[in-house]
Write a protein that binds this DNA or RNA. Structure first.
Lengths: 261, 261
DNA sequence: ACACGGACTTGATCTAAATCAAGGTTGCAT
DNA sequence: ATGCAACCTTGATTTAGATCAAGTCCGTGT
């Protein structure tokens, strides 16, 4: 009974799977390996201790609900490992994934009382949870942290605008090319440019359903388009839900709306 | 030769049309009639003086470029009257309007060196321009202002996610219904609920081309859909680029993805 | 080894919206 | 008043991507 059908577990109920006491280790944030790639990079040593104190670390299996659309917006999260999907839905079940949050990204900011979106883990995810009052205290106490958050939200907004261009005006082919390049960039970011072998690899832990709901397509169209790219030797499958991009240049051309195959 | 064909004028070159010296009147922001509906509501009297000192007021005719995609991000703007369109384009000219900024909305935030989007006036627009260094000073000097900006950007992000749902998953009919209701809400906001007569009016100063580029449709589909709504007596035309919404409830039902005409 | 279930692929057909193609309206400039 | 140009509407036809319909692949548990 390790991982059966109905996606269970709400992240902000009391005793969540593998919740670590934040007050135990002041070092947690100090030794966090992705800290330089996240909001937390704005903090000095004292600030990092405050962060560790204000947050709890969670480890969640695939398919776990993190936040639910319409529920009280009680917490803010920083993803430290794995991939989370954010989405909005229509009453009849149509769903739009508005973004994937990989390690280093935040989620859960809300001005309203309730979340205007849902969030669910794609694979095994580690994240730090900040309850609202604690986040507010941090923002007030550490102006550099607040400034960094403002910059991060501004970046997310620019990303969202790029995605609107994709959803409103790109063809299926252009959408999928853009997606693969984005996943390659995301993978490079989380791997920190460490190895040459990682080059041109994209990590694609999500299902075709998720990709389709992200690109405003059906799973069949996503599948066909990926197959076509594979047949044209623009990409090749790699182990572990990864895709090797054989011609970044061609894919870039396609993604930006110029014809070539 | 008041307003001929090729859309001219860059807003941040020295002597822009009707630029008012910011340092002249300390009262400008104090007496601003939309201040309570904007970022500026976070400021006390002293702050308002600082705002007036840090900004310049511009008055621009329809079709004026405010910011250009790829140009250095030198300024931040607060719209105090009229409507601005924000957009991104593909090399072949396909365009996606990512939002309309009405009175009280800001635009021009950027973390990068250059703007990732363009902005152009839809009708006669009044706006306050803050150069980057001046904005940064304001943020540092007035924490409540920075907090308010963070909230405003967070709201814009939620709006963007809603628009992604529209672009990726809604039908033409649902898109247009959503748009009309949004325009009604925008009109109510800028009119401040003053009059009963204003009820159920939507202000639509933009062309069909703009609406189509905002909804991810063609002008023909937008036109046909609006005509169909008119034929079904869900809406009616009103003077001055306005539309009267005859059945808000029905339009809401359609916008949220349930069938009814 | 095998079989079950979820995820993916591929093919055939359908359709919502795009494209192509005329007109009709409206407002401004002369 | 009249003519022009931009904007909008409506109709006919086409098409990209959706839907419908089988399979295939792959990982896990027995």
């Amino acid at each position: 009974m390790t991982s059966s059908s109905p996606p269970p577990a709400l992240a902000h109920s009391a005793g969540v799977a593998h919740a670590h006491k934040g007050d135990g280790d002041v070092l947690r944030c100090l030794v966090c390996d992705i800290r330089n790639r996240s909001l937390c990079s704005s903090m000095d040593e004292e600030g990092l201790a405050a962060l560790a104190h204000s947050s709890r670390q969670l480890q969640l299996p695939p398919g776990t609900t993190i936040v639910e659309e319409g529920e009280p917006a009680l917490a803010f999260f920083n993803v430290t490992g794995g991939t989370v999907k954010l989405f909005k839905s229509l009453p009849d079940g149509r769903r739009q994934i508005t973004g994937f949050a990989d390690a280093g990204q935040f989620l859960g900011l809300s001005t309203a009382q309730t979340y205007s979106f849902g969030a669910e883990t794609v694979d095994n995810v580690r994240l730090c949870r900040f309850l609202r009052p604690q986040l507010e205290t941090l923002l007030s106490d550490y102006p550099t942290f607040e400034r960094r958050l403002l910059a991060a939200v501004t970046d997310k907004l620019a990303e969202a605008q790029e995605q609107m261009l994709l959803l409103g005006r790109k063809t299926a082919r252009e959408k999928v090319a853009t997606f693969l390049l984005d996943r390659m960039r995301a993978y490079h970011l989380t791997m920190g440019h460490t190895r040459q072998e990682v080059e041109n690899l994209a990590s694609v832990p999500m299902t075709r359903v998720d990709i389709a709901d992200y690109l405003g397509l059906t799973i069949e169209t996503v599948s066909r388009t990926i197959s076509a790219f594979r047949r044209s030797h623009l990409i090749a499958s790699a182990e572990n839900h990864r895709i090797r991009i054989l011609s970044v240049a061609t894919l870039l051309t396609i993604a930006s709306g110029q014809k070539p195959d």
